[in-house]
């Protein structure tokens, strides 16, 4: 039981990080970046390839998230900005971010081959006993990173001017421009940040998943579920709480129902949560589809 909780929390931290990454970019641009999972994947692949090439595995751990960060910015300029520039309320980003993910995934599969490759264990082979349960160093690292990410983001959002201008950009980009904010830079920075977080999530989980070009889709889905359960659209930190809950539930389903249950059980939970509190468990109100400001004529 305790073991299940622990491993649930650690995988949940990964889902939560991904959910936060999705929430951050959604928060500012109202776009769900369906290529977020591919950023996690590219961080893993870069790190794996570097360590395969004989470099110190920690070099890969440093460079992988950086690659994800670059990819995040690229996804903004290729898949999001051209669409929002034409029509802020278009749903075209659904297609373009998915298309971007598809391109990245298959380009990587073509470049390094579609097979899975090994990943250095990092801290994964340092077991730590907690009563009956065992937790690895890597899992502890994941939990620490998650806690740090939540605290840092809350600080940026609430206490810094950048966070406030991000909120302003989210609410009314044209007005944000009119007070002198370069909304393009603000948005690009948020996408970079969300790419970075997804990349960090990637190198944290990689010792368990190994490196495969098609990892992104699954994690994207779970990150999305974490965001929606928690109410990430309102506040990125909520996505982390949603992720932790999701992780525990998925592990629990696997051990108490059957080994396939994590394929569908979390979604069942999501439906129930949304029926009870449509705005997510940890939210107070729903800014998702706020009334559109009338266009001045």
């Amino acid at each position: 039981m305790f073991q299940m909780m622990l491993s649930g929390l650690t995988i949940g931290a990964i889902y939560g990080l991904l959910g936060m990454a999705l929430s951050i970019s959604f928060y500012v641009t109202r776009v769900i970046n369906f290529a977020q999972g591919q950023m996690l994947m590219i961080a893993i692949i870069v790190a794996a390839c570097l360590s395969e090439a004989g470099f110190n595995p920690w070099l890969g751990v440093a460079l992988g998230p950086l690659a994800a960060c670059v990819l995040g910015v690229a996804s903004y300029f290729i898949g999001v900005r051209p669409i929002l520039k034409a029509d802020r309320f278009s749903f075209g980003w659904m297609v373009s971010t998915l298309g971007f993910g598809l391109v990245v995934e298959n380009a990587i599969a073509y470049a390094v081959g579609p097979r899975s490759r090994g990943f250095p264990p990092l801290l994964n082979d340092i077991p730590i006993r907690l009563g009956d349960a065992v937790i690895t160093g890597q899992q502890i690292l994941a939990l620490l990173v998650a806690a740090f990410a939540v605290a840092a983001l809350e600080f940026v959002r609430k206490r810094t001017l950048f966070g406030k201008v991000g909120m302003a950009t989210a609410a009314d980009p044209e007005m944000a421009e009119s007070i002198g904010a370069n909304t393009m830079i603000v948005s690009a920075v948020t996408f970079a940040l969300s790419g970075l977080i997804a990349g960090i999530a990637g190198v944290l989980i990689a010792p368990r998943t190994f490196a495969n070009p098609y990892l992104g889709g699954t994690f994207n889905t779970f990150g999305f579920v974490a965001m929606m359960i928690g109410g990430g659209p309102e506040n990125p930190a909520n996505a982390m709480y949603g992720g932790l809950l999701l992780g525990v539930l998925a592990e629990g389903a696997n051990s108490y129902i059957n080994s396939q249950a994590s394929d569908w059980f979390p979604f069942l939970i999501l439906v129930l949560v949304l029926i009870v509190t449509p705005r997510g468990l940890f939210s107070t109100s729903n800014p998702l589809f706020r009334p559109r400001p009338a266009r001045p004529a």
Binding site: W93, V95, L102, V103, N106, A107, Y110
Partner: peptide, 18 residues
């Protein structure tokens, strides 16, 4: 090549909507 085909499909759909 199936991967390149998917890449091309992705690029085309991005171009279509942008």
């Amino acid at each position: 090549n199936p991967w390149l085909q998917e890449v091309l499909y992705g690029i085309l759909s991005i171009l279509a909507v942008t």
